[in-house]
């Protein structure tokens, strides 16, 4: 089981995680967070391989995977 947590308020929608997800699970949400950014969202956490590319590329420590 993958617990995939997105700290939506920290996300700045930079897209670096999205570009590096080999399974293309990530995208920007059409919603805005309180800072005015479109935060990242995950389509299907069960598909996540825990490659940690997203957490490695994220400049804002938004995603945790446990």
């Amino acid at each position: 089981m993958v617990t995939f947590t997105i700290d939506v308020e920290r996300c700045k929608g930079c897209g670096l995680c999205i570009a590096h997800c080999p399974r293309k699970l990530l995208s920007l949400s059409p919603n805005l967070n309180s800072k005015g950014f479109h935060p990242v969202r995950i389509s299907d956490p069960e598909q996540c391989t825990r490659c940690l590319n997203c957490t490695t590329m994220c400049p804002d420590v938004v995603i945790s995977i446990t």
């Binding site: 700045k12 950014f37 825990r50 490695t56 400049p59 420590v61 945790s64 995977i65």
Partner: peptide, 25 residues
């Protein structure tokens, strides 16, 4: 079983850098 959690040595304060800034990484 690879996991990632916020490093303990970071405070809770969100980085003030611009979106995508390398300083954060």
């Amino acid at each position: 079983k690879r996991t990632f959690q916020r490093p303990k040595s970071l405070t809770d304060i969100p980085f003030r850098y611009c979106p995508g800034c390398g300083h954060g990484i």
